[in-house]
Simulated scan of single mutants.
Amino acid sequence: MIATEKLASVREQFPVTKRQLYLDSAHQTPLSLPVRDALYSFLTEGYEMAGPKPVWVRRVEETRANVARFFNASPSEIAFTKNTSEGLNIAANAVPLEAGDNVVLIEGDHPNNAYAWLNLKRKGVEVRFVPLKDNEIAAAKTFEPFIDERTKVVTLSHVTFHAGQVHDLASIGKLCKERGIYLVVDAMQSVGVIPVDVKALNISVLAAGTHKGLLVPQGLGILYVADGLDELRPAYIAMSSMLNPPADYIARAEDMAVRKDALRFEFGNINLPDLHALDAAIKLIESVGVSNIQKHVTALGDQLLSELDKLDVKVVGPRERGQRNHIYVLDLPVQKWADHFARNDVRVSPERGGIRISLAVFNTADDIKRLVDVIRTGLRETTAAAVAQVD
C-alpha cells in the first residue's frame, strides 16, 4: 500500500471521509480541497477581473500537456469534450465506415458506447455483440471469432462498470494492429486508477470523463486520437477545428481544410472551470502516482474479498488480481441492501448484479473493516427476520 503518511495526507484532502463511508467512486468521486480551491480561484478571477481569457486558455494548454503525459500521448493527440459519451459518438461518426462494414462490441458493456455505434445501423453498418460473462475477461481470443475482412472497429470499456472486469487491452490492441482495425476504448472507469499507455496498447481512440478517477465534477471529458489517423473526420466543425482559421472571422467555402491533430474534434468554448479543477486534480494524483493508486486499491480489494469469504458473500465479477482492480459488485439483493447501506451512512451504488463497492485513493483498511461490520449486521438482521417469519 501507499506509505501511511502519504495515504493519511491524501485522505485529509477529501472532507467527505469525515462525514460518511464513501465507496462510490465508480459513480463519481467527491470534491477534494485542491479541486474546490481551483474552482473558487477561477470564479474569483471571473468576478474580479471579468475573465482573463488569454490566461485561462494558456492554462488549458498546460493541462492538455499534463493529460497527454497521463496516457503517454502528445498534446496534439488530446481534445477536450463534455463526457465519455460525447467522445465515443465523435469516434463513431469519425471512423470512415461504409454500408456492409461491421463494428464489434461486448454484449452488456456500457449502453452509451453501444448506442453510439448502433446509431450507424441506419447507414448500413453492422454491429456485432460478443457474449461475455461477468466473471470473464475479454482478450484477443474473445473477439477473433467475430472479426472478418469487413470489421473496421473493435470497441470496449477498459474496466466494466457493472462487474469490475479489467479487460486485456494489450492482446486486443495487438490483434487490432495486426488486422488494421481501429481500437476504440472507453476508459471512464480506469483513467486515474490504472496506468493507461495508449501507445503500448495500440489504442486508436480513447474517451473518458473526468468525474471518477480524475476527481473532477461532471461536465468535462477527454478524447485521445492517435496522430496519423487523418482519415478520421469530425462530424461537426467550428472555427477552432479549421487548419487555417480566418483572421477576419469570415468563413470561406474554398478553404474547408481541418486541423491534422485531435483538436479538429474540439469546437467552441470548453469547460474552463473544470479544466482548472483538472489541473489541480492531476497534481494531487501525481503526488501519489497512478501505479501506486492501483496497488493501493488492489490491496484493499484483497482485504475485502478475504472478509467477504468469511461472511459467505459472493462477488459478481472476477477475483483474480490483474482481472479486477477497484470495483466489486456484491451478490446481494439490491433493494434491501441499498436501503441498509443508506441507513448506515455508507455510499454505494445499486448495480445490475447487486451492490457495487468502488474504491479510491482516499479509502483505507479501516473503511473496509467498517464496511464488513455493516454487512455483518445486515446479514444478522436478515437471519433474524427469517427466523421470526418461520415462528
Rank of each mutant, 00 (worst) to 15 (best):
V205N: 06
N202K: 10
L97Y: 12
V387G: 01
G51M: 09
T44I: 02
G46N: 06
W337R: 04
W117S: 07
D345C: 11
I222H: 00
G173S: 09
E62D: 13
A79N: 03
I327H: 06
N363G: 06
L232F: 14
V185L: 13
K123H: 04
A257W: 09
K141I: 00
K123D: 06
E86F: 09
K6A: 09
Q389L: 01
M239F: 14
P96C: 08
S349M: 13
V372T: 14
A365E: 04
D37S: 07
V334P: 00
D186T: 07
E86T: 12
K18S: 12
V390E: 13
R321Y: 14
H326R: 15
I293E: 00
M188T: 06
F70C: 12
V346I: 08
V104T: 11
Y22E: 10
P273E: 05
S25E: 07
I285P: 09
V225K: 06
K6F: 00
G51E: 13
V290C: 03
I250N: 15
L120D: 03
Q335D: 08
S190F: 13
P273I: 14
F129D: 15
Q189H: 14
G192C: 05
A68V: 08
S76R: 13
G289N: 07
V329S: 12
V104G: 10
G209Q: 13
P217M: 15
D279T: 10
V16N: 06
G209V: 11
Y236A: 10
A299C: 07
A73W: 02
L371W: 10
D331H: 11
D339F: 14
Q13H: 05
L308V: 05
M242Q: 05
A208S: 15
G289F: 00
L220A: 09
V372D: 08
V185R: 04
L243K: 15
L175K: 04
D101S: 04
I172S: 12
D261H: 02
N135T: 11
A3Q: 10
V184I: 14
I357T: 02
L120A: 01
N344P: 03
G289K: 05
K199T: 05
A247F: 09
Q218I: 07
L118F: 11
A277I: 03
S291Q: 13
D339R: 07
D197Q: 10
V258M: 11
L43K: 06
D168I: 02
E136V: 04
F143V: 11
A207L: 08
I203N: 07
K174Y: 00
F267M: 09
V153H: 09
V130T: 15
N83V: 11
A140S: 05
Q28E: 11
I357D: 06
N292Y: 02
D331A: 04
H211L: 12
H296P: 05
T155A: 15
I282F: 09
F341P: 13
D302Q: 10
V316E: 06
F71K: 07
Y40S: 12
V103P: 14
A280K: 10
T298K: 15
